[in-house]
Structures are given as C-alpha cells and as structure tokens.
Design a protein around this nucleic acid. Structure first.
Length: 355
DNA sequence: TAGTCGTGGAA
DNA sequence: TTTCCAAGACT
C-alpha cells in the first residue's frame, strides 16, 4: 500500500506553482479553484493559463461572471474548445450567485451544471479540504501503475476509483495536488521517471518493469473525414456576413462564416455555389484543414463581394470581426482571407461589442 | 452506454 | 505525417 505521507513529503519539497493554487498555508478561493478545474477539463495547463488570467481580470468574482452577458463569456472562452463548458460555466455561476456561495459538500457541487464526479471531488478536496480523491487522467495513470492494473481503460475506471478512494485521508487539498504533480512530472505517460518517484518502493508496475505499458487502453476507432464549404461575403460598405451556430451541439453558440453542412463527400464548385448565402461571383480562395476529436474536417473557402448583403445572419465591419466568438476552425478560415489577423489568433483580447 | 464535444503541442 | 494526449461532462 502506497503511503500518503510519503507522497505529501515529496509534494512539500516539489510543489509546482500555478496561478490558481493557494499559497501554502492559505485557504484556496473556491471560485478560482472551480474556474481552473472547468478550464482544465481535457485541456493542458499551458493552454489554460492565459485564459484563466483573462477570466480573472474580466470576471473577478463568481457574481461578476454571473452578471456578465452570455456573449461576453463565449468570446472570452473562444479558442479554448469544448464550448459546452463555457455555457455550463455561466449557468453554474448564476446558480452559485443565487445560492450566495459554492456548496461545501460533494452532493451540492455535483448538482451544479458542468460539475461531474471528477470536478466535484477536485473542488471539494482542493477548496474545502474534503477527504476525497478526484480521478483524472493523472490519477488513473498513477493508480494503474502502483497497483499494476491490467484491465484496459475505460473498463478499469471503477477498479481505479476504488483504489483511489482508499488513499483519501490526510491533508486532502495537498494530497490531490500531489497526485496531479506526480502524474505530470514523474509518472508521465511515456518514459516515467521511476528513479525519482516517492512511491517507487510500493509500485507494482515498477517491480514488474511494466510501468510504461500501463494503463492499458482499448483501441479507438479511426477518425472519419468530413468536407464543407464556407463563404466570406462582403459588401460595398466593408461588412462581412457572419452567423451564430445553434446553441447546442458542435461549436454550439459560437460564431462562424456561413457555410454548408459537413458531410462525407467533398463539395463541387457548382454544389458550393448553389449552397452559398446569396448569388454572387464566388472565387475559391483556398482550403482549411482542422482536426476534431472524432473527425477530420476539410473546408473549401469561397469569397465574393456584393453591393448589398441580403442573407440570413448578421453583418459586422471587417476590421471588427476579430473580436467575434470564433472557434479555432473559423479563425483559420478568416486568417486565410486576412493573413494579418494571425496576431489575434488566440486568445482574443479585443474589446467586446455587445449586440 | 457509447458517442459527442475542441484544441494545440508533444511523441 | 499521424497519433496521442490533457485536472471530463453530458446524453
């Protein structure tokens, strides 16, 4: 059985500094812990930091976030991905503001939008010092190795959770962050630094020499290819036509150039012209490629200028479209047309212009 | 429960 | 180049 005290001693010597972490000895701010945990879902620390800093300046408290217009939240999140997180973040802030404070128990946290079993345990342990262990990718890897679990993921999750639960106990906030740090710096996916590991003596995988082969994972299906066409339509006054995507589903609530559906077969020029927002002399500008988690996307980009735009959507001055809530794939499309816009690729710091 | 849902950097 | 991966939630 691995020793929590051993891990905590290692943590006290090696704790990593991060913008959302409390200074040793001081209480953590539940708002900051929660905000960081939502952003860190399936997202690297490096990608999160600039967004976290920006959110904290723009929305210093959960009340400020709750009172902000939805479009301001989506713009601030644009580029970070998994946009349902931003919608749930805003909804959660409203509920917490109405409650007066974050719930200090697992059931109360779990009932909030965007907070699942992992995040409830993470916020519970880090912000409220509840004796629980959040099981994320790091903890899955550490537990799989320490106990030499051969069951492939995701089937092994219950087994891993059961082992993790038994580790809970002393200094919950530090123990949780110690496990994160161990997984991030020592017990890494490839080439784990077992020689430096505080749990080396207790690790079954290390004893068997199979640490790097764990955790085992079920093979994933191949990503299909999809195709679409999107349109850069400008008018004589220097406006461009944009659209807001449906509130739910892929890139829900985000802004896009008007376009076709994304299907398995490519769009011919004739098909694309027929699907354009309005008749015009369309010129093919180029192609944009983008990889999503479960499919690869190839977009043909067409451009045209007309005297007056008459189509569904809304028009914005071309120079101001940088501040729109574009997901990355759409920012790539815009960059194809306006190469200079690359400097504002991510994250957008432009002023908000509520509509 | 198995899919859906982004992104960019590392391997 | 392609694949893998990162502090998962929701349906």
């Amino acid at each position: 059985m691995p020793s929590a005290d051993l891990l905590l001693a290692w943590y006290d010597r090696n704790r990593r500094r991060m913008p959302w972490r409390a200074v040793p000895g001081q209480a953590a701010d539940p708002y900051r812990v929660w905000l960081s945990e939502i952003m860190l879902q399936q997202t690297t620390v490096a990608a999160v930091i600039p967004y976290y800093e920006k959110f904290l300046i723009r929305f210093p408290t959960v009340e400020a976030l709750a009172d902000a217009p939805s479009d301001a939240v989506m713009r601030a999140w644009a580029g970070l991905g998994y946009y349902a997180r931003a919608r749930n973040l805003h909804a959660c802030a409203k509920e917490v503001a109405a409650l007066g404070a974050f719930p200090a128990d697992i059931a109360g946290l779990r009932a909030l939008p965007g907070i699942g079993p992992y995040t409830a345990a993470a916020v519970g342990s880090i912000a409220f010092n509840l004796p629980v262990i959040p099981v994320d990718g790091n903890v899955e890897r550490v537990i799989s190795r320490v106990f030499a679990i051969q069951t492939p993921l995701p089937a092994a999750k219950p087994e891993i959770q059961a082992h993790a639960d038994r580790l809970a106990g002393p200094r919950p906030a530090d123990l949780t962050q110690a496990l994160f740090d161990l997984g991030a710096t020592i017990c890494t996916p490839t080439k784990p630094a077992c020689v430096l590991c505080p749990w080396r003596e207790a690790c079954a995988a290390q004893a068997q020499g199979i640490a790097e082969q764990l955790p085992r994972k079920a093979t994933k299906p191949a990503r299909p290819q999809r195709h679409g066409a999107h349109f850069w339509l400008t008018d004589a006054e220097g406006h461009v036509l944009l659209r807001r995507r449906p509130a739910k589903g892929l890139l829900g609530g985000m802004i896009e150039l008007p376009g076709t559906e994304w299907r398995a077969t490519p769009w011919s020029d004739a098909e694309a012209h027929a699907a354009a927002p309005m008749p015009a002399v369309w010129r093919k500008v180029g192609m944009v490629e983008h990889g999503f988690t479960h499919f690869a996307l190839e977009l043909a980009i067409y451009a045209a200028t007309v005297p007056r735009i008459e189509a569904d959507g809304f028009r914005v001055p071309i120079a101001e479209c940088e501040s729109e809530a574009f997901p990355s794939v759409m920012r790539k499309c815009v960059r194809l047309i306006r190469p200079r816009s690359a400097s504002t690729l991510r994250p957008s710091n432009a002023e908000e212009t509520p509509r």
